[in-house]
Design a protein around this nucleic acid. Structure first.
Lengths: 253, 253
DNA sequence: CTTTCCTGTCTTGTATGCAAGATAGCCAGA
DNA sequence: TCTGGCTATCTTGCATACAAGACAGGAAAG
């Protein structure tokens, strides 16, 4: 048991590691998060792991199936719709309420869009997944409102999980264009237009999903029989290398 | 140790009890929440209490001072501003995105406003505090979006804490009028107008606060010396009857 | 009287132990 | 071959024990 570093840094690290793993699409929905495995991975006891899981549960990132385990959420089609709706409400409300784009903010967004471009050119899909989601968080950061940033970060994480479940194709170019249009409207000082564009953008992404392909084909029957969410062998392990090479990358955000 | 009921119902009860205590302004900001006392009150071990505290912490309702205790948050002036800003963003975004007011929704809001009226007539301040906050949650419920409802519920709880800290007078009539105006615009189908009105309403409430009267007059010095948040004898206990007869009721929401 | 230090007590932080449900695999019987 | 039931094992649920920091109060020294 060689402690890589003298622990101490494991306070909020479990939480953040999992969230950032989702944001960069390395952790798939439905991933099993074993308390014991996480405990040994982070060299802490199960207590700390459970605390992190509870926090993530209230953030809507994981859920627990009693006596069976913790799993990264697999949003249902209804939940997916709710997430996009919430994002439209918040992001449009945010943009519409903006009064000016500071020079600093303009530079930050410009730099971000350049990163998107270079990731697209390099074909770095994992990085692209992350950047596509991060754009919206960057916009929230412009407001300087930590509350909104936190809310949007969690919603973005859920969005990425949704995309992994329901998205077939990868339309990075389209999303990038949407981001650019929003940025242009912001630069022009037309925040009402930017708000409209952000709604359109999220609509576009949502429409690109196939919300009819249920991840669990038995979900209808199962819910009508009120059975537990999803038994069976869909267990992908956290340290499983396959999770790091998953196929089908995220377009969204 | 007479168990009032055979436990079992203590799963999420701790969390909900505290939140609803805040929503009805029975629990003041800065209230100490002792793990041991809560554990005996709810007839569970500290473990369960800690879980509830962790959840409430991620919801921004309580915070922990290491090795000193859990406390209901006392939002700073900056945090207060951020909360109102977040609410303006979300509530205005929500209203502006609405397309129609269902008959069901109209009835629900109408009934709520009547409740406000009767509470005002009866001078039931505690109930009034609750209703003033609940109006905005009701609007969120119209969207049928559980995510937004949860977010607004927590923000409303924080708003009430802010009011308890920074609000001197009680302007229930003014708030009630604001609610009525928003409802009228919604009934008229003018949701853009309703959104504007909700922003004005929240501005009005925020302006009614005295954000210069700091709850901790030493906070500036304290933070510049990076000392722990607030030592001293400001401990009001959960089961202390004084908490149920606090003076200075909430106007807000 | 003021200041300093020390100690007892109370708080949370963390790990661990045990209970109990869920699951998978095996074995026996039809 | 298929079905049913039993058991071994793995999972979380929850309580408890102990460690360690924070604080209050008192005693002693100036």
């Amino acid at each position: 048991m060689q402690d890589s570093q003298t622990s101490e840094t494991t306070q909020k690290t479990i939480e953040e590691t999992i969230v950032s793993g989702i944001l960069s699409a390395r952790i798939r929905p439905g991933t099993r998060l074993s308390e014991n495995q996480l405990a040994t991975l982070f060299s802490v006891s199960r207590t700390r792991v459970r605390e992190a899981m509870m926090r993530l549960e209230t953030r809507g990132i994981v859920h627990v199936s009693p006596r069976r385990g913790w799993f990264v959420v697999e949003p249902s089609a209804e939940e997916a719709i709710a997430v996009y709706e919430a994002r439209r409400v918040i992001e449009a409300g945010l943009l519409r309420g903006m009064r000016a784009l500071t020079d600093e903010g303009r530079k930050a967004l410009d730099a971000h869009l350049n990163e998107e471009k270079s990731a697209m050119a390099a074909g770095d899909r994992q990085r692209l997944s992350y950047l596509m989601g991060d754009f919206h968080i960057r916009i929230a950061e412009l407001s300087g409102n930590a509350i909104i940033v936190d809310i949007l970060r969690d919603l973005t994480a859920r969005t990425i999980l949704i995309s992994m479940l329901y998205q077939s194709e990868f339309h990075a170019v389209q999303s990038h264009d949407g981001h650019c249009r929003i940025f242009e409207a912001m630069q022009a000082g037309d925040f009402a237009r930017a708000a409209e564009l952000s709604i359109e953008h999220l609509d576009e992404v949502e429409m690109g999903l196939d919300l009819t392909t249920r991840p669990d084909p038995l979900s209808e029957l199962r819910s009508s029989l009120s059975l537990p969410p999803r038994p069976g062998p869909r267990v992908s392990q956290l340290s499983d290398p396959k999770n790091h090479n998953f196929k089908g990358v995220i377009k969204t955000c």
